[in-house]
Structures are given as structure tokens and as C-alpha cells.
Design a protein around this nucleic acid. Structure first.
Lengths: 162, 162
DNA sequence: ATTCTTGCAAAGCCTTTGCAACTGC
DNA sequence: GCAGTTGCAAAGGCTTTGCAAGAAT
């Protein structure tokens, strides 16, 4: 449904280096940052800070919580990652080298299904223009339950019984 | 652009009472809850928990933080309020008696501008159906800067100078 | 009377930050 | 060597929760 990639002419690592060095106040590219970028772009799941640290630790890569958060913020700012607002904590996904898309979020299994609706985006930017609003990005998540979870037909839980 | 209200046949207070008494385990309607419902539906701004408590206190109505949060959760569950995910904290707005809509969120002045695009909703539910996804609600926020803030033309701040 | 709600303060959770040691450039 | 980065632990901001006292049904 969504093509897997968009052609890019730099690796995520290169793009990040470029971002860092182009700052008014140049920033440094460290080993921890390199490991994070490589690990993150070596897979394609949505993740949150805690998951990332856990997975990297399991892969023998260690970094402190502080560095994880600090670097994630830079990666978002650099346009390499996109931050998703799902309610509680921040979740991240690839931005660079991956087409724009929105999500279905399954409230049962927590899975995120990507989709892309160009006409919706066109409609939105048109409306924004009419309002004199300068749109920079949007966040669209449709909450519900996914097909597998619906098929499962688990007897619904009576939340009020407690 | 958006009609101000949708016809409803119960006051918010009545609807909340009904919700409370229809629970498997009936809940009680207290004075603090009544004050909250009346205060909230007596105005029409978007608000967060802290603002609500501050405003109510200024109006001579007191309630504890715990009660504010607990009641807001019930009001959302009852379909009276809608919870908006703007990133940091939860913001709320009327749901009952107010048409579905989405938002432009101004990143400079924090204002939220409402809009309603039926065709977008139609497109989304169609796509959901195709995926076997059962959608229950969605959250769409377009971030950017609003017309007044754009007109203001304040010299842009060099965030990197620090 | 029973059972839910309140208020307080403490704890929880995610995220940020001060500071000394460290490292990229 | 200078200036930015790391790691630790502590603090921060928003939200939830345990518990005893109070209130709704």
C-alpha cells in the first residue's frame, strides 16, 4: 500500500552529520549518536525511548537514558525521525527516506498501521491556506481495533465489573 | 464555519447523571461534579486540568486536583468531553452538543482553530473499512502558525544562538 | 447503612537538567 | 585545548493512587 522507501541521496548517518555541522553553533557527532542512528535505521518499527534503550542494550549497545532522550530530540529536529503523539509517551518512527503517512492505532494490540492519503493532505493544506494558517506538519491517528483483533472475537471485557 | 451547536435533548448535567446511573456499578453524582459540569459547559474554551482548576477557583469554586482529574476522566468516558493530544499535557473540549471537528494548532500563541471536513472523515472511514479496521475516533491536529501570528512578523528568533 | 467520592499527600511515569568527567574537532 | 557530550542522579511536570473522612443513595 505504501511504497517502502523514497529515494534519498544520503545515508541517515550522513544526513545527521550534515545537520550537526550546519548548526549556527556546530554540534559534535559522537559514538553513542552513531550507534543510535545505526540501530534505529537498521530496523523499521515504531518505538519509544524505553524500548529503544532496552533493545539496544539487548544488542550489546549501552547508552544512558539522558543521551537517548537528548539524541532523539536532535534526530527529530534533524528531520530523521518523526514524533508521534499517542497519548501517554512519545513514540518515534523514521521520517527521512520514508514517505509521509498517517496511522491507524489498534487500541487492543497497540499496533500501528500506516496509510497515506494524498487527497486528505491536499485538502488540509488548501484549508490551511484559506485560513492564513501556515501548516508545518500534522498528526493524524485513527484509533480503533485492527482486523486480527476483531477476528479474534475475544469475549469483550466488562470494564465496569471491578 | 462550524455551527456552534448540534441539537441535543438533554443538558450536559442530565446526560452525565444518566451515564453515572447506567453503569454496571452505579456511580454517584456529587456536588463537585455538578460544579465542574456546569462550569465547563458554561464556557466554550479548550482547557487543561490546571486551567480549569485555576478558573474555577477564581470563580469561587474549589475542588481538589484529584477530583478534577477523576471527574475529567469520567466526563470523557461519558462522551461529554473530548481529550486532545497536543503533546505535553491533555487538553479538553466539549464533545456533547458540539459537532465533530479537528484543529489547527498555532505553535506560537497556542491557540486552537476548529474546522470540519466531512469529506476527510468519509475518506478515512472508507479506508478503515477496507483494512478491516474498526475506527472509533480520530485525532487530527495540524501544527503551524496562525494568521495573526504570521502577520505579526516578529523577527524570528535564532534558537541556535544559545 | 452501605458504598462511592473526596482531599491530601505520596508515589508514578515520562522526560529534562545540573554538574563533573570525558571526548570530538 | 576548547566547547560540546555523556552519565548519573536528582528534579520537573502532569497524572494517578492509598487511605481515612465525608457524602450520596
Amino acid at each position: 500500500m505504501i511504497p517502502n522507501t523514497v529515494p534519498v541521496n544520503q545515508t541517515p548517518e550522513e544526513k545527521f552529520r550534515e545537520y550537526l555541522s550546519s548548526r549556527v553553533k556546530p554540534q559534535r557527532f559522537t559514538e553513542q549518536q552513531r550507534e543510535m542512528v545505526r540501530y534505529i535505521f537498521g530496523q523499521h518499527e515504531h518505538f519509544d525511548a524505553e524500548q529503544l534503550m532496552g533493545d539496544m542494550k539487548a544488542a550489546g549497545l549501552v547508552l544512558s537514558r539522558a543521551t537517548a532522550y537528548r539524541t532523539l530530540a536532535k534526530l527529530v529536529d534533524a528531520g530523521l525521525l518523526r514524533r508521534l503523539l499517542t497519548g501517554d509517551k512519545s513514540r518515534f518512527e523514521h521520517d527521512y527516506g520514508y514517505p509521509d503517512h498517517d496511522h491507524f492505532h489498534c487500541m487492543k494490540c497497540n499496533k500501528m498501521i500506516e496509510f497515506h492519503l494524498p487527497e486528505v493532505e491536499r485538502t488540509l493544506s488548501e484549508l490551511a491556506r484559506e485560513h492564513g494558517f501556515v501548516a508545518s506538519r500534522h498528526n493524524l491517528i485513527v484509533h480503533g481495533t485492527c482486523d486480527p483483533c476483531n477476528q479474534a472475537k475475544t469475549p469483550r471485557r466488562l470494564l465496569d465489573l471491578i
